[in-house]
Amino acid sequence: MTDTPPDHLSNNPKSPHYDEAALLRGVGIRFKGVEKTNVEEYCVSESWVRLSVGKSVDRHGAPLTMKLSGTVEPYFRDDGEAG
C-alpha cells in the first residue's frame, strides 16, 4: 500500500469508495487546517468532506451528514500504535 491515502474514501461499506484496508490502517483528516474526527466521507480532488451531525441517524440507521467545501488533507496515522 502507498503512503498516500485515497483521493475519495467513505466509511460506508455500501459505498463504491469504501476501502477497508485504508480504514484499518487509519486515515486522519485535516479540513481547512483543523483536525476532524467526525468525517464520514471525503474527496480531495473535489475539495469536500461529509461530516456526521451529532448522534442523529436516518431511517436506515446511517448517520445524518452535512457536506462542506474546503481544503481537505488526508493522512495515514502512523503513530506507532499496535492494534
Rank of each mutant, 00 (worst) to 15 (best):
M1Y: 06
M1V: 09
T2I: 13
T2G: 07
D3H: 10
T4R: 04
P5N: 04
D7N: 12
D7P: 04
H8T: 15
L9C: 10
N11E: 03
N11H: 09
K14R: 10
S15Q: 02
S15R: 06
D19E: 09
E20D: 04
A21G: 01
A22M: 07
L23V: 05
L24A: 10
R25N: 06
R25F: 15
V27N: 02
R30N: 06
R30P: 01
F31G: 08
V34A: 04
K36L: 13
E40T: 05
C43Y: 00
S45N: 04
S45T: 15
S45Y: 01
R50Q: 10
L51A: 10
S52T: 14
V53R: 14
V53L: 13
G54M: 12
K55A: 07
S56G: 02
V57H: 05
V57C: 00
V57D: 04
R59P: 00
R59W: 13
G61K: 06
P63M: 04
P63D: 02
P63K: 03
L64P: 01
M66R: 15
L68Q: 03
G70M: 05
T71P: 02
T71S: 10
E73C: 14
P74Y: 05
Y75H: 13
Y75Q: 06
F76Y: 15
R77K: 14
R77P: 02
D78C: 14
D78M: 13
D79K: 14
G80Y: 02
E81K: 15
E81M: 12
A82R: 12
G83T: 09
